[in-house]
Design a binder for these strands. Structure first.
Lengths: 187, 187
DNA sequence: CCTGAAATCTATAGGTA
DNA sequence: TACCTATAGATTTCAGG
């Protein structure tokens, strides 16, 4: 992909302060050009690349690239940087996807369940979903015995779980960042 | 957590070369002490923290911390660094979890399906699972119309999909890195 | 595991189109 | 507004103790 063109991507507009920027994003009004998208794409996979090298890759000198990066960070488009730690580092671990059905569907039921999720470190992801199921969880545990213990705890905790369905991960097939190029183009 | 103690965590042993390190991890023989775990934990959430600041946080001076970090990187315990890009950056996007059942369960069926997954950028995650379902997918699309198009494509592609179940994400509740402290302790 | 200094990287000032 | 070059200051890396 050519990093130079601005094509059918809208230009990033200037704002007087951070609050304007943030609210613009929330309302989907902030637009990124090709270079911004390429910067994001590179940083998704190489989060610690030196800024000079990043600039070179998008055909810019350090300063304008640095300014763009700063804007992306301050606008919250880059939420954070993080190291991806291999799960093999700690010996074999088990991942389980869990579907959860709640007993009742009042606001307080959802709130109670979601509060409980926050406190359990083994539950690394929790998503509210539609489609006959209330929540999807991703759980990381040492082994299936530990998983069963966790489930027992969940059921005993009286947080309104009616039914749960477990799907143990037998193999990771694919795990990629969101393809920013795909969603930035042609607004 | 105190970063100084070595408690019931095993010490990281020295290896003469990279291959030994890597194979040790694969066989789960490489052990990390409290400081290593703390380094990992910090970097998961602050991937671009200056190395001097990291050293200070684990009560070390720059050099030994830097050596540990290098070991962790070379051993593949830190797989990569990455920027987390906000999905709001591109206007509203839709996430969908998809369960897939294949038509047949021969090695070639799995291989064909998995090959197809690699080529579709909207499919950001794919996991083989047990529990009556063959695969879990996480899909990111512009909207539900785009999702339907993607599904139609998948079904038309003759990659052996027998049945699929869709669960549209209505709200992200929790999304955390794997809690390394939990799995490193007490071997 | 420490100190310290060379090499590299970052952030900013000042200037061009 | 968007970009450039140049540079002081910060950080990273590594030799030697």
């Amino acid at each position: 992909m050519d990093a130079g063109g601005e094509a059918d991507l809208c230009l990033l507009t200037r704002f007087t302060n951070r609050k304007d920027l943030v609210s613009s994003i929330k309302h989907g009004r902030l637009k990124l050009d090709n270079r911004d998208v390429r910067i994001l794409s590179i940083l998704q996979k190489e989060g610690r690349i030196p800024k000079a090298a990043l600039a070179e890759r998008v055909n810019l000198s350090a300063t304008p690239c640095w300014e763009r990066l700063k804007r992306l960070e301050e606008a919250g488009i880059i939420e954070r940087y993080g190291a991806k730690v291999s799960m093999k580092a700690f010996g074999p671990l088990t991942q389980v996807f869990v579907q959860i059905e709640l007993e009742a569907h009042h606001a307080e039921n959802f709130a109670r369940f979601e509060r409980a999720m926050a406190d359990i470190p083994e539950i690394v992801e929790c998503w509210a979903v539609g489609g006959g199921i209330d929540y999807f969880l991703k759980v990381v545990v040492r082994d299936l015995e530990a998983y069963q213990d966790l489930v027992d705890q969940l059921l005993a905790a009286e947080i309104g779980v009616n039914r749960y369905y477990s799907y143990v991960v037998t193999m990771p097939v694919k795990e990629e960042p969101v393809p920013v190029e795909l969603f930035a183009a042609t607004d």
